[in-house]
């Protein structure tokens, strides 16, 4: 019957209803309301919300010295921590990619820190490891290095947290490894017939082919690092002298300790903007260094 219109099948929409509700209620609404809160003074105890316009943003950029300190601390953590994770992950993936017996065992073992690393128990462990009399200083002592007061030293405290981040390179490594395993063996065969050395093969074949995964991992690690909370809150408690007072800890304190949800929302938006801009820069630079097969 050519006259009847095809009836729209409603089933997909009905089945998508939970997701759609979730999308609107738990994603779209929070984002919009968060921006609204950032323009207000919101106090949960007094149950008050007063509109203050851009006042918080102006304050953050002009008079708020804690924000500056916190921003520098976060940036230091991200800009040192991300390359360290990436290099460790790639190096180990590269070694694991040789056909060695027992690779699966190592692969699994290296992944354990990634699974456990965010746990409070590991943060406790880290404070003990970096205790003045803890194992780290003892190992340094073997090499004749004076013990360091890791947790109270303004220069070194952030490295305690960076080392914890680096310790968890496993999931990044697995993504590199599976990318490496997808590189066709025939490419290497052709290269060695042409007389390319192993080092040459690494820089001319392996690295270019896995650059999309380098991009993926870099953004992933970077975005997570910007939001680090647990380790800074638990191990160094933001100290000493706010050298590890990451923005996410500052946001937590402002909102949930000082009950200043408006100001905390404004800091959140600035942090989101920073993450967004940096991600965009990395993405737009990718056309220069990421090799796409298709």
């Amino acid at each position: 019957m050519p006259t009847t219109k095809r009836k729209t099948n409603l089933t997909p929409y009905i089945l998508l209803a939970p997701w759609f509700i979730g999308f609107v209620v738990f994603k779209v609404y929070p984002i919009i309301s968060s921006f609204w809160y950032s323009l207000t003074e919101t106090n949960l105890i007094l149950q008050e919300t007063t509109f203050v316009g851009l006042q918080h943003y102006i304050e953050i950029f002009t008079t708020d010295n804690i924000f500056k300190t916190s921003f520098v601390a976060t940036l230091k953590y991200v800009l040192i921590g991300t390359p360290m994770v990436m290099v460790a992950a790639f190096f180990i993936a590269f070694v694991l990619n040789f056909k060695l017996k027992g690779v699966n065992f190592f692969r699994t073992a290296y992944y354990i820190p990634s699974i456990l690393g965010g746990n409070v128990a590991v943060s406790i462990l880290w404070t003990m490891l970096f205790n003045t009399n803890g194992p780290i200083n003892i190992v340094l002592g073997v090499f004749g290095i004076e013990p360091v007061n890791w947790l109270t030293n303004e220069t070194y405290a952030v490295f305690v947290l960076i080392f914890l981040k680096t310790w968890q390179f496993g999931s990044t490594m697995l993504i590199f490894l599976s990318a490496l395993q997808n590189v066709s063996a025939s490419l290497y065969e052709a290269a060695s017939i042409d007389g390319a050395s192993k080092a040459r093969q690494l820089f001319s074949i392996t690295l270019p082919i896995i650059t999309p995964m380098v991009l993926f991992n870099a953004i992933n690690v970077l975005v997570k690092a910007f939001q680090e909370f647990n380790s800074a809150y638990l191990i160094t408690k933001g100290g000493p002298n706010r050298t590890t007072y990451f923005l996410n800890v500052y946001i937590y304190d402002t909102a949930f300790r000082m009950n200043n949800f408006g100001y905390a929302s404004a800091i959140t938006w600035i942090l989101l903007l920073i993450i967004g801009v940096l991600t965009a820069i990395i993405f737009s630079s990718s056309s220069y260094w990421v090799y796409y097969n298709d």
Binding site: F26, K27, Y29, P30, I31, S33, S34, Y37, V223, F226, Q227, N248, I251, A255, F261, A264, S265, T268, L271, L272, I275
Partner: peptide, 8 residues
């Protein structure tokens, strides 16, 4: 980022 949703 997950952080965006925490406060709202």
């Amino acid at each position: 980022p997950e952080l965006a949703f925490r406060i709202p």
